[in-house]
Design a protein around this nucleic acid. Structure first.
Lengths: 156, 156
DNA sequence: AGAATACCTGAGTTATTTACTTGGTTATTA
DNA sequence: TAATAACCAAGTAAATAACTCAGGTATTCT
């Protein structure tokens, strides 16, 4: 399992989308502001998420992204594998050719761990995360901050 | 949890050591050959493993390394944390300051996963790995290859 | 004593990957 | 037609990982 900022950003952005989408489609610049992620970087990530069918897009003013499935149907594992190439921690990426075309001494250990992580993340959906109190609290705070910032711009 | 080649090398080398140490202390150049890891890189890693008490060293001819504890006492988690700095996948390294000094929207998710991985690797010891049939098979093959290579050098 | 072995150390270098930017184009709506 | 926002590809900069180099020190064997 390759767990980097890229995957974390993708999950964070998807969760933001899931929380906000009751108000219709959500544009990336809003997500970028709330989650403090570079807009163009988000665009890259959402290109991949779209190709995987996890999100749908509408162009033009008032447009943005919405979930392609219900929050309950979108697992964290699916998001990560949509933006990261592989979901494996073995050196050979699961090909079993880590040492002279056969498995290295610890291949199975990493392979087993990869599966554990994969299963864990498959079992958690965006729907599960939304229900968590801590997520609600943080989302509310981020909302307030964003609205306040916009207020300041309009009437300083 | 930061899982990189460094940690994998360390675990592989430690497992090699655990398998071979019945014959007394094992020198790094042998491990380097069997596991195809650069000798100087191994020296770095074993410097850290020694400071953590996981291995003991004897200098001079016939010297090498031996385990500082029984294989059953050495967990995989201990090896990885001896060579990698942190064992956490959150962006803030567990400091909970990922966004403006508070937790980001997905902090708890990564934090929980980190704990899962940590627990999993704490529960596996070198002793457990040695018992596995696949490990025995691969170790035997690596032994043969090494001995054959030495034969070839002595009598080509 | 001297050569060989093998650990020990730190500073440097190279390669890879990640994160991010730039500079556009296309579709849609008001 | 002007503004908005998705779409896209290529490039770059920073970080980190992996590895090398050039010494050293302790120990043993001859």
């Amino acid at each position: 399992m390759k767990l980097t900022t890229k995957g974390r950003y993708a999950v964070t952005a998807m969760l933001d989308l899931a929380i906000q989408q009751s108000a219709g489609s959500v544009c990336l610049s809003d997500i970028a502001e709330r989650q403090e992620i570079s807009l163009s970087y988000l665009e890259q990530l959402f290109g991949r998420l779209r190709k995987s069918g996890l999100v749908e897009s509408t162009r033009g003013p008032g447009g943005g992204y919405s979930l392609g499935q219900t929050p309950e149907q979108v697992s964290i594992a699916a998001i990560i594998s949509a933006v990261d190439e592989d979901v494996d921690i073995t050196r050979c990426s699961g090909n079993e050719n880590c040492q002279q075309n056969t498995r290295c001494l610890t291949h199975d250990l990493w392979s087993d761990l990869s599966n554990k992580i994969q299963n864990y993340l498959e079992d958690i959906s965006l729907g599960d995360l939304i229900k968590r109190q801590s997520v609600q609290t943080i989302a509310a705070r981020q909302d307030t901050v964003l609205l306040k910032r916009r207020d300041d711009i309009v009437a300083p």
